[in-house]
Amino acid sequence: MAHRWGMAIDLDRCMGCEACVAACHAENNLPVSDPAQAAKGRAVHWIRVDRYYEGEFPEIRVKYMPVLCQQCDEAPCEPVCPVYATYHNPEGLNVQVYNRCVGTRYCGNNCPYSVRFFNWFEPKWTAPLELQHNPDVAIRPGGVMEKCTFCVQRIERVKLDAKAENRPVADGEVQPACVQSCPAEAMVFGDLNDPESKVSRLASSGRATRLLEELGAKPKVFYLQRGK
């Protein structure tokens, strides 16, 4: 049976340390924006940590929510692409093909989660940061959209390793950079088609909610929090 990759994020465990953000930048060759570009909303973060404040100082409570591409089953970004640069692959990933992208930015405008980013310029790194590029991930050229891939390079590698050893992919074997780096182990990644996988069990638990579920995009990222 084909995989259907999904993620569960335990918001009661997340403390907003942003290790996932740093790990994502390192793994996926994301350029570091300067303050001027960031002020124009051009900073690229495939995963960000949203903050919500509850109460008034000093009785204040901050809630953190890591937001990445939700890999929607009914992705609003897909039907608006005129060149099929973004499509749904057989494993449920919402894929961005950089070679096809002509930069209309329709997908980014149609994304309710604001997790798609446009490369306004050729990406630049201050020396010697360019030496730490991950060779498994493309350097996206200027003029194309990009977004979280669920670390598809790691998925591909694990699948090929498993095939070479003639065994199925084990639960928890694929770890995107954000999941791997989370010190609180708040993030869990796995196969939603496997009812025994950890992510499936968390997704079907009573604590699971999905972001902006009323839009009907059917995201595959599940947020866990205690009921109100």
Partner: peptide, 8 residues
């Protein structure tokens, strides 16, 4: 023949 098998 999935694009993302080679392009990522």
């Amino acid at each position: 023949e999935d694009c993302v098998a080679c392009h990522y």
